[in-house]
């Protein structure tokens, strides 16, 4: 049984108000959405704000989702919109926010990366937001190209191409750093 075949009945039940079913959906998507938001926003606090907003909005508006099989794309679209709102708020009130743009390199409250000298997280932080989200979903969460494609409304070949290009870029920069 495919992932979508498992997902559709859950979405349909959640759409009818079944909180337990939505709990299962949340368990399935909580971390991927969070990783995508970290990729988009970089700051952990911002990502968590957008993450909460995303799932609350998803629960509230789920009855409006007509095609249950499109749930992942719909959910990630809500997440991207929430990230955009948070980013705009951050831009509007910059003084209230600490400069912590290197979240990906040293996430707050998390164990330090394996090696403090490891330049990889910093290099990931230099990628474009959507590419960063893509890398985190594929490399860290282990999502297939098809799953990422469904979430981002891209084609699977686009996901593969962008992912390969991102890894090549990271590799080149790592080599450059090690060389220097």
């Amino acid at each position: 049984m495919g992932v979508m075949e498992l997902l559709v009945p859950l979405v349909e039940r959640a759409r009818d108000g079944d909180r337990a079913a939505f709990g299962d959906l949340h368990a399935r998507f909580a971390r991927p959405v969070y990783l995508a938001l970290v990729g988009l926003l970089r700051r952990r606090e911002d990502a968590e704000d957008a993450w909460q907003v995303t799932f609350l909005a998803a629960w509230r508006h789920l009855p409006r989702l007509r095609r249950a099989d499109r749930f992942p794309g719909w959910l990630f679209r809500i997440a991207r919109n929430a990230a955009r709102d948070v980013a705009q708020r951050r831009k509007r009130f910059p003084a209230a926010l600490p400069d912590a743009s290197d979240l990906v390199a040293r996430p707050n409250g998390l164990p330090a990366p394996p090696s403090a000298a490891d330049p990889l997280p910093a290099l990931v932080g230099e990628l474009r937001p959507e590419t960063r989200a893509l890398v985190l979903l594929r490399a860290v969460e282990g999502w297939s190209a098809e799953e990422v494609a469904a979430a981002f409304s891209w084609s699977a070949s686009t996901v593969r191409r962008r992912y390969a290009r991102a890894l090549a870029l990271l590799r080149a920069r790592l080599t450059e750093r090690n060389g220097s």
Partner: peptide, 26 residues
């Protein structure tokens, strides 16, 4: 490279307190 990325970001997850908050709100 993927293994290094996984190792670096594996612990990355929402703050449990925020997750509880969300669950209560939901």
């Amino acid at each position: 490279l993927e293994a290094r990325l996984r190792a670096a970001y594996a612990p990355l997850a929402p703050d449990p307190a925020r997750a509880d908050d969300l669950a209560a709100t939901l």
